[in-house]
């Protein structure tokens, strides 16, 4: 729906949709290849009975996926996976109709990046289309959906709107998709520390090692009385904890430094933009919506991180 002349004359202001929450990403890490499914030489890995490393950025997970892949002590930390709308603001204040329509709205990234992955990924391909050391990633595809009780918002961005199906690897010039590359990165960021409640990264992971060591002791104590099936499970769990401790010790700062890290993106969406439902005004879907967000607070042991961002919709309140 495009704005009529009366709205075009008016000053366009933004309805800002603020969202945040924990995401999960079963991502392969250097020096494993980007499509590594088990994790053999990087610091991330798929443990027994878990889903493979499928690279997918999951802003939401279902119960079965969470049960399968949520490692101890994720639940004890009170970190539930799910990126949600936390506010809808207009003119510097919460705009009640939009806030109600989007109360706790689920924020999702849809689409696939085949044959690489069956979902959206942080794409660098070991420095082929981005750069791992510079944290220069493209989130591809970028197909956003926000689903609330009173409204659904979708927005899709193309690397090349002239060729919507064109993939990152098909470009010859990274400048052509520069707008979709992360804009900057930083470690030791205060906002991130506050968001994930980790102010002592070394202590956080020291506690993690102690937790894993206690779990090993607990499971070892259960071995003597265990039947063969339980014994096999306990032994696998013990070795999984050992592998997690190994990774924390082996990689050290490489894991520790990521818990207060942030990587930012910001761009104007160039594809279809749709609002279904009522936000208490009119949204201009013809003008590109601007989105800015960061992913960070990465826990390379739990394979979770935190995302926070804002989607700006050109808006005229009712």
């Amino acid at each position: 729906m495009s704005l009529g002349p009366d709205l075009q004359q008016a000053t366009i202001r933004l309805l800002e949709i603020h969202f945040e929450g924990y995401f999960m990403c079963r991502i392969a890490t250097d020096p494993d290849p980007s499509n590594e499914h088990r994790g053999m030489s990087g610091y991330t890995m798929a443990l027994p009975r878990e889903t493979r490393l499928d690279q997918i950025i999951r802003l939401q997970v279902d119960e079965e996926f969470a049960r399968k892949n949520a490692r101890a002590p994720l639940h004890d930390l009170g970190k539930d996976i799910g990126v949600r709308v936390v506010d809808a603001r207009f003119d510097g204040a919460t705009y009640a109709p939009a806030a109600a329509a989007l109360k706790d709205a689920r924020v999702e990234l849809l689409g696939k990046n085949q044959p690489f992955a069956d979902g959206p990924v942080f794409e660098s391909r070991n420095n082929i289309v981005g750069n791992d050391d510079a944290m220069a990633f493209v989130i591809q595809p970028f197909d956003l959906r926000i689903v609330g009780p009173g409204a659904t918002i979708t927005a899709r961005d193309y690397l090349d709107p002239g060729e919507p199906a064109k993939q990152t690897w098909q470009f010859t010039d990274p400048a052509a998709y520069a707008r979709r590359i992360s804009t900057c990165q930083i470690t030791g960021d205060t906002e991130v520390a506050q968001a994930v409640n980790v102010f002592d990264p070394y202590g956080y992971f020291r506690d993690r090692r102690r937790t894993l060591e206690r779990l090993i002791e607990r499971d070892r104590a259960l071995l003597p009385g265990a039947d063969p099936a339980l014994r096999a499970k306990l032994e696998a769990d013990i070795q999984s904890y050992q592998s997690r401790i190994y990774q924390l010790e082996f990689w050290g700062d490489r894991i520790i430094s990521k818990i207060q890290m942030r990587v930012d993106w910001e761009f104007e969406i160039n594809g279809p933009q749709v609002v279904d439902g009522a936000l208490g005004g009119r949204v201009d879907v013809a003008q590109p919506w601007r989105i800015g967000f960061w992913f960070g607070g990465w826990d390379g042991d739990l394979l979770i991180g935190f995302a926070r961002g804002t989607l700006g919709l050109p808006f005229l309140p009712s």
Partner: peptide, 29 residues
């Protein structure tokens, strides 16, 4: 393609980890 691109134009600045421009402004709160 990258080999040719790099030959003609060098390292893409956004892919250079030594480029200070890739660092965010810290958020202090």
């Amino acid at each position: 393609n990258n080999v040719v691109w790099n030959y003609r134009r060098g390292t893409y600045p956004r892919f250079d980890p030594n480029n200070p421009a890739i660092n965010c402004t810290p958020s202090t709160g």
